[in-house]
């Protein structure tokens, strides 16, 4: 996995929101990279900045929001330098994104088929007939009967709509797919099926995935590596299995503890109390390599086992 080319390289990304007299540093010096074909999970809770990172990569943040980085490179191309037509052609073709609750943002007055075809006619100047055929192919790809092209979004269930959205995202075979909480609004039974879908597509087409969620257990099942964010900074980054078996940072531990085991003896899980949190959260230092491949932000009282 490490000998593959680096697809996305981010160094010291900072995003600052501005409003009137106040500023909020939502992302504060985040660095990571994604290799070709790799699935990177970005974990953290609301307000930690993970969605902001995704929006920054997609260049969806407008001034006065300020994005700075030592490097924000996609295949050696500087993303921050792209503008206008080049930016538009790069979006969706090279990097595509599935937003949070995207299934609820499908246009309610257009059929599914029309919306899928839109992707092709807009980005590839395809004719309508060809676009329709490709749309049918896309639906088959996500296990939906092509007859549903004529359906309106409200006629589909939540899970199906999410699959339509995923289909739209992979329509142009992007090299990187960003998914922001793709299963949060879905029932637990459906979540698993969506995750399986994503996994299948990823294996089939070999694109990289930046998977953003607060649900650690889902992430461990899908990701190769996982990065944990808190308050705009990364606190830990390691292969998925390592994070699961040996989390080093107290916050990662707290996230893992939130999912009690479904088998084995019942053990009392320690909660992350406010004092402990306050001890390390006011100033989070840069990541250091604790063991090869396992990076942690050191905490005041040393590492937490």
């Amino acid at each position: 996995m490490s000998n593959l080319n680096t697809l996305l390289d981010i160094k010291n990304l900072c995003v600052t929101y501005r409003g009137g007299a106040r500023e909020l540093r939502a992302v504060d010096g985040v660095s990571f990279s994604i290799a070709e074909g790799e699935v990177l999970g970005l974990a953290g809770e609301s307000g930690c900045g993970k969605s902001t990172v995704a929006n920054a990569i997609m260049r969806l943040l407008k001034p006065p929001t300020e994005i700075t980085a030592d490097a924000l490179h996609f295949e050696q191309r500087d993303l921050l330098a792209l503008e206008g037509r080049k930016l538009r052609s790069f979006r969706w073709r090279e990097i595509a994104m599935v937003f949070q609750s995207a299934m609820n943002s499908l246009n309610p007055v257009l059929t599914v088929g029309e919306q899928l075809a839109d992707v092709f006619t807009t980005h590839e100047r395809m004719g309508r007939r060809e676009a329709r055929d490709r749309s049918a192919d896309l639906l088959r790809l996500v296990d939906i009967d092509p007859g549903r092209l004529k359906a309106y979004p409200h006629q589909l269930s939540g899970g199906m709509r999410q699959r339509v959205v995923i289909a739209m995202a992979v329509a142009l075979r992007p090299k990187l797919l960003i998914m922001d909480e793709p299963t949060t609004a879905l029932d637990v039974v459906v979540q698993q099926e969506i995750m399986a879908q994503i996994k299948g597509l990823q294996r089939q087409f070999g694109f990289s995935v930046l998977f953003i969620s607060h649900d650690m257990s889902l992430m461990v099942e899908l990701s190769d590596r996982i990065g944990v964010m808190y308050a705009g900074r990364l606190v830990e980054m390691a292969p998925a299995r390592t994070i699961f078996t040996r989390p080093l940072h107290p916050y990662t531990n707290a996230l893992m503890n939130a999912f009690p085991p479904l088998s084995g003896p019942r053990v009392e899980l320690t909660a992350l109390d406010d004092e402990t949190r306050a001890a390390w959260s006011s100033h989070i230092p840069d990541l250091t390599e604790a063991t090869p491949g396992h990076w942690v932000a050191p905490t005041p009282e040393g590492s937490h086992a």
Partner: peptide, 12 residues
Amino acid sequence: SAAPDPNRVGEF
């Protein structure tokens, strides 16, 4: 079977 369980062996 639907509950997320990283300990679970085998795929969906």
